[in-house]
Design a protein around this nucleic acid. Sequence first.
RNA 1: AGGGAUAUGGUGUAAUGGCAGCACAACGGUUUUUGGAACCGUUUGUCUAGGUUCGAAUCCUGGUAUCCCUGCCA
Length: 814
Amino acid sequence: MTDAPKPPTSGNTPTVAPNFITEIIERDLQSGKYQTIVTRFPPEPSGYAHLGHVFASFLDFQTANQYGGRYHLRMDDTNPELATQEYVDAIADDLKWLGWDWGEHFYYASDNFEQYYEYAEQLVRQGDAYVDSVSPDEMARLRGDSKTPGTPSEYRGRNMEENLDLLRRMKAGEFPDGAHVLRAKIDLSSPNMKLRDPVLYRILHGQHYRQGDRWCIYPMYDFQHPLQDALEGVTHSMCSLEFVDNRAIYDWLMERLNFDPRPHQYEFGRRGLEYTITSKRKLRRLIEEGKVTGWDDPRMPTLRAQRRLGVTPEAVKAFAAQIGVNRTNRTVDLAVYENAVRDDLNHRAPRVMAVLEPVKVTLSGLDEAKTLSLPYWPHDVVRDSPGGLVRLPTGERVDPAKAVRGVPLSSEIYIEREDFSAEPPKGYKRLTPGGTVRLRGAGIIRADSFETDDAGKVTHIHATLLGENAKAGGVIHWVSAAEAVPAEFRLYDRLFLVPNPEGEQADFLPDDEEAQGENGKAPADASYLRYLNPGSLRVLRGYVEPSVLRDPQDTRYQFERQGYFWRDPVESREDALVFGRIITLKDTWAKSTEASAGGPPSQGFPRKGRESTESTTAQAPLPTDPATAHRAPRTAAPLTPAQEAHLARLTSLGAAEADARIIARDEVLLKFVESAVQDGTFAQVASWTVNDLVAGLRAGSVQVQAADLAPLARELTGGRLTTRVARDALARAAASGEAPLAMIEREGLNAGLSDADLQEAIRDVLDANPNELSAYRAGKTALLGFFTGQVMRDTGGKAEPKKVAAVLKSALEG
RNA sequence: AGGGAUAUGGUGUAAUGGCAGCACAACGGUUUUUGGAACCGUUUGUCUAGGUUCGAAUCCUGGUAUCCCUGCCA
């Protein structure tokens, strides 16, 4: 037996946290079921990759990475009407951008149409598939529904030769679209609708982007996907939760076609992102209606757009690694993504200054224009830099003293409009009439006077440079008017105003709309459009310091106090700079002013969900929802007369009422206790049946005989056995079929435990856990359970728990 | 309705019968020539009612809630 490779515990590459799938993988590797694991990410090339795909591809690829396996990229391009080369290229390109390298393992389902077809013929020859010739409507009708089992179509009984002949003629193109389909012959009455003879092939005359018109029958997902996994040698095939029901077909196919070793399907919960939609159709509509400029509009959730926005692949992967894996569909807080993006940029983006909404300031007290040498990095980044070196915009790593740029200063400068206030709010730390503020890197100024236009808008400020011999509460950024470079700034914000744009937002509707809306419900499909954020793009014209002209085009900056920006890779020109904001800085000042103002901020941002729910619940504590108030919880269905008879019989034998009730309504349990000994031990056996054996009984995995339980129960009630020992033995006996008491006697587990042995065990446990001991003595009494558990384990369950607790307590206190 | 899946702070997760932990968010403080970052601290949680057990987030039963399935899409 070899040790399964363990995931790396440290390092810079983001890892998949342990989850139920990695557990399965470790088990499979350990048991030798597979030598190496193989995973695949299988997009349909019918749209661009988006943030929703990031999670799935990260899970597929990184899991394989961590366990020393390999991963494939595969195009599930079986639908000729949807798949295109453009999407294939875009998806592969975006995934490469993320840093994935599948080497030669890039597959197209459509390359294997021939092999799929041969398997289809095999199924027909085995009698496992047939050609059906009813119309789609008829097939839907015959399939039945949840209450009604399906009925066979008149063609289900066609013999093998006829089926084979028809299938070949379908392939040869003898029939028009929809004339026939190939169906698996599984189970028309299955409660799992997927199993009611799923369609395997359909006739579709058209052009496939890779196969042209070579084929006129195309395989369905449920046929193609498992086959392709098996053909590629995939071991662990992960997909999202909505395919749970499809797994039955997957397993059926693997079994009928005798794949060994074979892949297995595991399903995980999807992850949505707040304020984001990922539906292809809905995203396309945003483009068509001109709400955004295209698939790469920086506000879009596509990877192309996030790339253009300036988010780095490292940030995207760090985000993916933050998200946990389980079997529930969940929505991730947007802050998790934003945090990943900021965290990545903080150590990547040199600091420079740009004024987005300029106001001119004329400075007195400055003798002559000069050029200041200002550092690219703040003290903390310098302090934390590896090797003591920091990066220049060119990427070169240099001594922090050399990581500077020249910043001209003259008597005409621009500052941010928001950084001067004639009537400052409480707590304002910027420039005010007569007040002082520090110009970043240039000294302290005092505002002497200002001019306004007719509307009262400040147009010009006159200030005095006081140098260092003054005090100032705040720091603001600036650029020198003569040398500053004009630029356009695009400030992006979330596209939607509400966390879940695809759901109903009854409490969000403006009053007038709510009045006319039907019960506050928005029309189901287009409703997301009304939650569009009208402020998702703001365009400003301002100035950036001239040093940026010397930097590489793809430099990402932090414009101090403004956020992270870079040149829009599509529209920025050397002589017409366009900077897009990748993400804002956190802004606790804006948040506090917003909160005290009591209304939405100037940009019309939504409040976060938490604040709104808090306020509503705080003001209206527990408003009983009329919809639920009337609905008393339903109780269990009443017993049938036959079950009542069972119940009476079981209780007369001594079973507890609750146990008897559970057994009475369950055929499997009834059958089991039928063979139990009907004496004083019956109550205990019934209890074990209900509490310990039920899951195994239903799964059919319980080997032990009910009659063999009586001696065990007798020993237990006689006090010659602890509950722990009895239950452990019961569990093992259930699996092995051995009589549990015989097992206990063979292993000497009924030997009992002397007081001296118990004392020693407790001493050992206390010695082995000094930290817990002192924590207990310091008042953390919750650790009593921990110590009890340790003692029970040490003694193999032979200790009497009540005694353990008593003795342990005095030992702990002493 | 029938079948399936799921339920742990505001959000995402960990604890595999024995200390309810971590991250993000929020809040407070320290520090800071960015109202950034960093550092320290605080608040908040096992859907519900029973059962088994010395001990239950975990096992059992009922209930509730959410999602998925009834395409010749994937």
